[in-house]
Simulated assay, not measured.
Amino acid sequence: MLSLPWQERLHQTLRRLRNNGAEPRVALVGMGHTLYGDDGAGILLTQLLRPLERDMEGLLVVNGGSAPENCTGLLRRFMPDLVVLVDAAQLDEAPGTIQWIPSEMTSGFSASTHTLPLHLISCYLSMELVCEIVLLGIQPRRLNFGSMSLIVEAHVREMAKALEGTFKAFLTDDPGNREASICHVQEDQPIPLRLPYVCRERYL
């Protein structure tokens, strides 16, 4: 189930949703805490990808912090077809490894700073939103108090580039984007270390 690369699993899912006759609506929810090392990986990803929202009506990027269940109202108003949770997870792999984990398989993975376990968050959101839920798990190197490890930060930045290219290919009407190469996120812009906020009430 986890053998295919996460990019291919995402492409397959978006292609299937697109074949249903409408542009898919995707909510990406970063989870974690920026003060605890690599637990902030999901939050860093949301900071890198948030500018894409300006040009994509079918994309919502949410900083879920340590209590993503509190963003349910925002997600419900957006009405996504797919919710992608992004979080540090113990995968027993090399630091920075990323895996696509279907919601029904999240019970075997642990995270450190959430108010609810991953499988309960997935189950709750699935029932509330009636849509597909998946987890992109990122293997941390360290979860103690302090900054993110360089290896995990590098993988998150590469992940942001890949997601930007995928979202531009599947969430826009321009067919030329189907063949576009992965676009680059500026790597020379520092990401500030700050306490996560719960979510932005953008859809009132």
Rank of each mutant, 00 (worst) to 15 (best):
D38P: 00
Q12R: 11
M56F: 02
R18W: 11
L44C: 04
Q12D: 15
E57P: 11
D39A: 04
V62I: 15
E57G: 08
V26M: 06
L28G: 09
T46R: 06
V29H: 02
R15I: 06
L35R: 12
R25A: 12
D39C: 11
A41G: 07
Q12W: 11
G37W: 00
R25T: 10
Q47V: 13
I43V: 10
E57M: 08
L49T: 06
L52D: 01
N19S: 13
V26G: 06
T13R: 12
G30Y: 00
E57V: 03
V26C: 07
N19C: 10
L35I: 06
G42D: 00
V26I: 06
L48R: 07
L48A: 02
D39Y: 03
G42F: 02
R18Y: 09
R54I: 10
L60I: 03
D39Q: 10
P51T: 09
L49W: 09
R18C: 09
L44S: 07
M56L: 03
Y36P: 14
T46E: 05
M56K: 09
M31E: 06
D55A: 15
G32W: 00
N19W: 05
E23Y: 03
E23S: 11
P24D: 13
D38C: 04
T34D: 14
I43L: 13
V61K: 00
G42A: 01
